[in-house]
Design a protein around this nucleic acid. Structure first.
Ligand SMILES: [Mn+2]
Ligand SMILES: [Mn+2]
Ligand SMILES: [Zn+2]
Ligand SMILES: [Zn+2]
Lengths: 147, 147
DNA sequence: TATTAGAAGAGAATGATTATTATTTAATAA
DNA sequence: TTATTAAATAATAATCATTCTCTTCTAATA
């Protein structure tokens, strides 16, 4: 689940299995989703693809990401006002670390959330199916610039 | 920090200390923020206050909540598309449990996030100053309705 | 009671996202 | 290879929460 090439093939398979067509624009979007580690925004994906497809519409990017979301092949990180960021490399819930200055988003590998989830279920009676764990602060680069 | 009456007084003190005036509209907003446990949205606060102040503008609600945010007296829970929800009762970061069906938001009392924060700092080199922990699922009421 | 900085009210503007619709094209089979 | 067709794309309008702008009003102070 961590080799971009395999991620891309899995995405394509999943699309074909559900009867979706593989268009060049779609493929370009998939590639960015599968390969990028930086949690790009729709706008960033759009600008990237415009290099090869100058006539692509940003609505096409939105629609394709929406499709991949419904197939469980991309994780959306929505924020209050700012635009959403996407992870097609690791499309299941995992903690993120977010620089409040440069907006960099980094994955965390910490995985002990089963315990927490269990405690939350006991505490509240909810049935938990998903979670979102974000830590906010300054990345090493931005810390350096501040001092 | 958990008696609504004391919360309200603390909010008023903080505003006065910073030279803000205490208007009837502002007071009404503060009261809702301090007393409600349900994480109301701006729209909900607006509709509630319209009972007593039929001419209030929703912009006034937005502006006052923004002021209370800068004073650290209210915690904003932003979501991707849906409108933000606010906690003036417990205005520091704490985990939330969210029903994806009825949009109910419940506080969790779990508090062992120092360990996690420390691990994240070691793992990423970020300086962490904030976090956001959400669990998503179905509340007991909505579970019952499903079966 | 008069003064005045700040607050409220009204409505326009913004910006991300979604919806609409006409045009184009990938996939399939003749 | 070509024709067919359902789905995808491109362009643009619409939506909706939130912010901004500006005018009027008022809480606090003396
Ligand atoms: Mn990620
Ligand atoms: Mn809360
Ligand atoms: Zn940074
Ligand atoms: Zn519910």
């Amino acid at each position: 689940m961590h080799d971009p090439k395999i991620r891309l093939e899995k995405m394509i398979d999943n699309l074909k299995r559900h009867g979706y067509k593989i268009t060049p624009q779609r493929l370009a979007i998939l590639r960015i989703l599968a390969y990028s580690l930086g949690h790009p925004s729709v706008e960033e994906i759009y600008q990237q693809i415009r290099i090869d497809f100058p006539t692509i519409s940003i609505a096409t990017v939105y629609k394709n990401i929406s499709t991949m979301k419904t197939l469980g092949e991309v994780l959306e990180l929505g924020f209050g006002n700012d635009s959403s960021r996407y992870d097609g490399h690791t499309p299941y819930p995992h903690p993120h670390v977010i620089c409040t200055k440069c907006k960099k988003i980094v994955d965390s590998q910490l995985e002990n959330f089963q315990d927490f989830t269990q405690k939350v279920i006991q505490e509240t009676g909810f049935s938990i199916v998903n979670h979102r764990i974000d830590f906010f602060g300054l990345c090493p680069d931005c810390q350096r610039q501040n001092s």
